[in-house]
Each structure stands twice: as structure tokens, then as C-alpha cells.
Design a protein around this nucleic acid. Structure first.
Length: 503
RNA sequence: AGCCGCGUGGCCGAGCGGAAAGGCAGGGGUCUGCAAAACCUUUUACGAUGGUUCGAAUCCAUCCGUGGCGUCCA
């Protein structure tokens, strides 16, 4: 059975066939590092991280490219118009690079906390000005762009006319018809510089106070909003690559413009499979700057935001996102996050216990419970089946929980461990580890302290056991309650054992 | 205006033509010195109205609500 993904370009699920197996090229639109990442940004990065991990698990050699936008229309968050910023930045001697570095570091920190693997290449727009200029020159030379007052615009109408004949009209990805849009575009700055309203900027002339500027054949300026992705994906993945991903809101105009620019330069549809994740909503609305409903990742991790009743761990966020399918909207609320927090805790505790077991299962297959074996086997096999069906992590999670019930039943001896066949038990351990840790990237966030904490707690557990055996409940309760107040929960187990979890 | 999309229990979410996954919360129970955890068990749902079909949450139509794009934003 092979992997199928929903291709936005074709509006249907398709079998994934790489252009040059076993190599896979994947480009995902990264953040603009002029501000902090928020919960909404976490979704595409987690979604495509899981896809990246899954593709590698399938044996593909993946080159994952995710850009950093650090040039162009730039403003630090919390401030207003661009020119004000530039002026203020000049007055305060604030280097654009300072902003970029600050937010890049924060972004990398958040990605690591969310346990997203770093992409193979993380190119920056400022590092590829030359490539962008070269691409723009080529587009002008071919007659699909024109210069006005030091700015360069892409001629969308000409492109649409010519490339429609090649079966690639402008709007092919988002299903828009150019004629329908011409009437509908709103007023923008410098609209009079464009031949048509639907034209978009490839290069913008920089006004004197603009602090980010580069020399170009058209004077000092900065690149347009879409050209970097065309230039950088081409440089690192070639004229035609396998997967292009990003948020649904980028489909139009960003990805549409990328396609047009690349098509002029390479005469190819740049990517075969276009994958778009849906939005995270908060009270039903997209989380975004313009709605003033943004919860930054730092705020989420610390709990410091008026909309938050508590802090949420990065793994809780990751799990919350994986509990839904990436193409559906996901609605944020404290109640939902709290639900995920508890669910994840239960999943990881069962998973940890399972991972520690040795020699689980019964050698004597005849003495095992065929119904149980069949159930576990089926649930495990479906992991792959669901992932192959357009990365349905929600269904995989559902199966994981059915297995958690089985695992806990064995742990608590409600089910005899001997009911499970040896090979099924081994498969259970192997598959749970593979999917929970390697593919979903979930891990216990217990602080790593070289086992010192564990030693200390083991001592307290021994003292408590001792006290209990003497029926000295004052002492045993004191240990339990005071540890609880410190965020360490002791759990008495069936066989007289004790374990703990750190909140 | 237009172009896409969505509306499933208290909450979050799968399913997308054949008896409504899973998680959280709530109820009852087992276990426990008491708890917690765990396990068992259980209440509650397909926006509305028509249609197609032997059969619809799933297809079609209309309506209502709502979101995204359209404009910097994942």
C-alpha cells in the first residue's frame, strides 16, 4: 500500500510518486522573522515535520528546505506603518539584522521545544538577493515583467494569456479565474505604476528612509514578496521538485505568484504535489496579527496571556495539533488544550511503561488470547494505513489510545501478560516506539538530571513504603502531599510498587 | 460583489452512501488506610427544510450560521 496525499493542485488525493526516487525534494514556506512565532505558525511546521519524518521512515532521502524571510516589507511587531519604523530604527540606530537575529533565535528555540527536526537547508532571503535579481532579469528579458520608477512588476495578464495555452493559467492552484479578479482588486500603494491591478511586485524601489536596501539594475531597493521562494526552491531543489507545502492562506496569492515566476524561468510547474494545512482558529477565527488574537509561542509556554488560564508545554501543543487532521481547521480553547494535556500524559505514561518491559508476551502461542492478539495486530497495522491516507494523524492517535487501554490492562494485571503472543507483544513495543517517538516526535519532557532526581525520589518512595507498612499514615501522607505540592505525583500500584510522574 | 470551504454530544475532533472513531469533561463501579492513577461501565451529537436512494452525517437543491482568500499575516 502506498502513500497518498491530497494535492491542492489537483484537488484530490493522489499516490505519491517522487520524481527521482529515492530522493524527495520538499519546500515549505517558513516564517517572516520580524516578529515572534505564534500558535498558528506552529501548525505547518509540525504538520510538515511529521510528513518529513514519515517520508524518511518510508525510506526516502528527503531534502527538506524551509526558508526564513528576512527581507522586504519589514516592520517589527507592535508598531505601525513601515516608514515610521524605518525612521525610528534609524533614530535608535537599530539594525534590521538585530531584529532578524533576535527573532530567528526565538523561532529556532521554539522549533526545538516543539521537537521539530531542523530542515536540511534553511535559506534566507537576504542571502539570496543575487539569485532573486537574476531571476527577475530573466523574467524581464522574456517579456513578462516591466520596470516603472525603479520597481519591477510581473505582467500577470501576459503570463495568463501565454501560459493558458500551455495548460498553466494564472490561478491554476487556487482555482481563480484572472478575468474575475481584475475587477475585484483593491487599491494598493503605487497602483498607478502597474499596468494592471493584478500585477505584483518582483522588486520594489526603496524610498530614502527605508533601511533594508540592495543595489540592483533598477536602483536601490528590495525584493518583492514572492520571488525568494521561487529563487531558493529552484537553487536547492531544481526546476521541478516533489512537494511544496505551507498554510492554506498562502495558496493565493503567494503560491500562485511563485508558480508564475518559476514557470517563466523554468517552463515547468515547479512542484508536483502542493500540500496546504488549514488554520488554527480561536473562537472560530484565524489566529493572525490583523485580528489581534495572537497567542505567541512564548506566551503559550509560559501561560502569560489574558486568554490563557495556564501554561501549556510544547509537547501538549504538538499533540493537540496531531489529534486533528491537518486539512481541517482546529479550534483553540483552554478546555481543548487541557484535554490534550491529560490525554498526552496518559499516552506517554503507558508508552514509557511498555518500553521498559522485557520479555513481554507468551512463547506458548496456543495459550494466548486470539481475540486480543488479533485486535492489537489490527490496530498496529492501521497506523501505516492511516498515515498513508493523507497523513491522518488523528486516526493514528485514536488507535494509540485503544492500545493504551490494552497496555494499562496488562500493567494493572486486569489482563494477564500471558494473553499476548510473544511476536505481537514485540510488534506492539516496536510500533509504538516508532510512531510515538520517531514519527510523531512526542517525548516526555521530564527534565534530564542524570538520574539524580530519580535517586532522591526512590529514597522518598522507600521511606513512604516503610511508613505505610508500619501504618504510619501521617508520615506516608506527608511525603505524598508535599511532593504533590512540588509537582511530583506518587502513584501506588497494584503489586505494592510505587511510581511517580513530574508535572 | 466574487472565488473556495466549513457547520458532528458540555468541549476538541475522526468518519464522507450501509448499525456515529478517539480524547477531555460528567455519572456509576472496581482497587486503595484515604486519595491519586489505572481499569470496567455509562448519559448526551450529525445547523434547517426539501430531494435522489432499498438505505444519507455522508450525494443534490435551497435557506440559516460561520470561516478563509481577495490586503502584511501560516
Amino acid at each position: 500500500m502506498s502513500l497518498k496525499v491530497y494535492n491542492s493542485l489537483k484537488r484530490q488525493k493522489e499516490v505519491f510518486t517522487p520524481i527521482n526516487p529515492p530522493y524527495v525534494g520538499m519546500y515549505v514556506c517558513g516564517p517572516t522573522v520580524s516578529g515572534e512565532s505564534h500558535l498558528g505558525h506552529a501548525r505547518p511546521y509540525i504538520t510538515f515535520d511529521v510528513l518529513y519524518r514519515y517520508l524518511m521512515h518510508l525510506g526516502y532521502k528527503v531534502r527538506y528546505v524551509r526558508n526564513l524571510t528576512d527581507a522586504g516589507h519589514f516592520e517589527e511587531e507592535g508598531r505601525e506603518a513601515e516608514d515610521k519604523i524605518s525612521k525610528k530604527a534609524v533614530l535608535e540606530k537599530l539594525e534590521p539584522m538585530e531584529l532578524v537575529q533576535k527573532y530567528t533565535r526565538l523561532y529556532h528555540w521554539a522549533m526545538e521545544r516543539l521537537n521539530n527536526l531542523p530542515p536540511a537547508i534553511e535559506p534566507t532571503a537576504t542571502g539570496h538577493i543575487t539569485e532573486q535579481i537574476e531571476m527577475i532579469k530573466k523574467i524581464i528579458a522574456d517579456g513578462y515583467a516591466y520596470e516603472t520608477n525603479g520597481s519591477v512588476y510581473f505582467d500577470v495578464e501576459k503570463y495568463n494569456t501565454d501560459f493558458s495555452r500551455e495548460g498553466q493559467p494564472y490561478g491554476i492552484l487556487s482555482g481563480r479565474i484572472l478575468e474575475d479578479q481584475i475587477e475585484s482588486t483593491r487599491e494598493l500603494d503605487n497602483q498607478d505604476e502597474k499596468r494592471n491591478k493584478s500585477d505584483f511586485a518582483l522588486w520594489k524601489n526603496a524610498p530614502p528612509e527605508h533601511i533594508m536596501r540592495w543595489q540592483s539594475p533598477w536602483g536601490e531597493g528590495f525584493p518583492g514578496w514572492h520571488i525568494e521562494c521561487s529563487a531558493m526552491s529552484r537553487k536547492y531543489l531544481g526546476d521541478e521538485f516533489d512537494i511544496h507545502g505551507g498554510g492554506m492562506d498562502l495558496q493565493f496569492p503567494h503560491h500562485e505568484c511563485e508558480i508564475a515566476q518559476s514557470a517563466v524561468c523554468n517552463h515547468k510547474m515547479m512542484a508536483r504535489y502542493w500540500m496546504h494545512n488549514n488554520m488554527i482558529t480561536i473562537n472560530g477565527k484565524k489566529m493572525g496579527k490583523s485580528y489581534n488574537n495572537v497567542i505567541k509561542l512564548t506566551e503559550l509556554f509560559s501561560g502569560e496571556h489574558p486568554l490563557l488560564t495556564q501554561a501549556y508545554a510544547p509537547m501538549t501543543i504538538r499533540f493537540f495539533i496531531l489529534q486533528s487532521h491537518y486539512r481541517g481547521t482546529l479550534d483553540f480553547s483552554n478546555e481543548a488544550l487541557q484535554g490534550s494535556e491529560k490525554a498526552l500524559k496518559r499516552l506517554l505514561e503507558a508508552h514509557d511503561w511498555l518500553a521498559q518491559q522485557q520479555g513481554l508476551g507468551n512463547d506458548d502461542a496456543a495459550a494466548t488470547d486470539p481475540e486480543l492478539n488479533g485486535k492489537v495486530d489490527k490496530l498496529l497495522n492501521e497506523f501505516t494505513e492511516f498515515m498513508n491516507d493523507d497523513i491522518n494523524t488523528a486516526k493514528v492517535v485514536a488507535n494509540m489510545f485503544e492500545l493504551v487501554s490494552v497496555i494499562n490492562a496488562i500493567k494493572d494485571k486486569h489482563l494477564p501478560a500471558a494473553a499476548l503472543r510473544k511476536d505481537i507483544a514485540a510488534q506492539l513495543q516496536q510500533q509504538m516506539k516508532l510512531f510515538v517517538e520517531d514519527i510523531f516526535g512526542l517525548k516526555n519532557e521530564r527534565a534530564d538530571n542524570n538520574g539524580k532526581l530519580d535517586g532522591v525520589l526512590q529514597l522518598l518512595i522507600d521511606i513512604r513504603k516503610d511508613a505505610k507498612s508500619r501504618k504510619d499514615f501521617v508520615t506516608s501522607d506527608k511525603i505524598r502531599n508535599e511532593l504533590s505540592a512540588l509537582g511530583v505525583q506518587l502513584k501506588d500500584e497494584k503489586d505494592g510498587g510505587m511510581s511517580y510522574t513530574v508535572a
